[in-house]
Amino acid sequence: MISPRVVIVEDEAATARALIRTLKQLDEGIIIASTLPSVTESINWFTGNEGLYDLVFMDIRLADGVSFDIFKRVSISKPVIFVTAYNDYALPAFKNNGIDYVLKPFDEQEIERALQKYHNFFSKSQPATVAPDMEALLAQISQLTRSYKKSFLVHFREKLIPVEANKIAWFYTANEIVYAHTTDSRQYIMEFTMEQLEQQLDPQLFFRANRQFIINRDAITEVDFYFNGRLAVKINPEPAERILISKARAPEFKSWMNN
């Protein structure tokens, strides 16, 4: 088997590094052609580098939008393996060159299986545009289930206490410490990073507003229009810092609120 040249589209640097490390452990011959952290940079790179890659590992939710927007702006003829924390994007993923769908947090076995599927579909005897059995792949995706955190065990005054996830109004990070603020105005230090929390929380209930905040839908009281197309989210209990949604993420936030 010929080792593919891989492009990684992932906005979390730690996740990108973990994926590169896993790929290299599975196949030392794999070449990382590029690591792209955003929709904009991906569009720019794919526009002029058609012949420089064989396979794409792509996150779906990026800092400046959803990765499906990349396909609207540039043609990607090579196969794509989607790696994401959310399984509700299955159908759009497979409409955009998807040959597999790996849920975060991923393990080596899942990435190995996805690589094997790539080699099975795109061997030397087959052109790179051969379509996989989409019906079978979608049937496989429909069986995927994702369980989300119902509660967290947190340290509080020399004790460990359970805190229900739906009772947390918002998570906030400052100085590399992550805090959970509950609906009854209690605050706890979390042992997870914001990226880890984003993978463990139900996306129907929680939204990553920006680098500092993950917010609970049920705690939102109103949303105001802010400068330059941004949105200001008011939440109860109210944090000391204003919660802003960027112009780029505003459509995704409004869609989430409308669900």
Rank of each mutant, 00 (worst) to 15 (best):
R21G: 03
I99E: 01
I99F: 02
V74L: 07
I8S: 01
D54Y: 06
S125Y: 14
D64A: 13
E110C: 03
I220W: 05
L231W: 02
S142G: 07
T35D: 14
E158Y: 11
A240E: 14
N96A: 09
N44K: 13
D69H: 13
E50S: 13
F156I: 02
Y89P: 01
S123W: 08
I8D: 01
R230I: 08
T129M: 09
R61S: 11
L115V: 01
T145D: 12
Q126A: 15
Q204Y: 10
E135A: 11
A93F: 03
N166E: 10
F71Y: 12
L26A: 06
T193W: 03
P251H: 12
M58R: 05
Q25S: 15
V163Y: 08
E41S: 15
P37A: 11
P127H: 05
Y89W: 13
N175P: 01
V130P: 02
W256S: 04
F171Q: 00
E50Y: 14
D88G: 08
A169T: 05
L26F: 04
R5V: 04
D59C: 13
G51M: 07
P237L: 07
P132M: 07
L115F: 01
Y226W: 15
M1A: 12
T15R: 07
K124L: 14
R242A: 08
L91T: 14
L52Q: 15
N210W: 06
V74T: 09
L23C: 10
E10H: 06
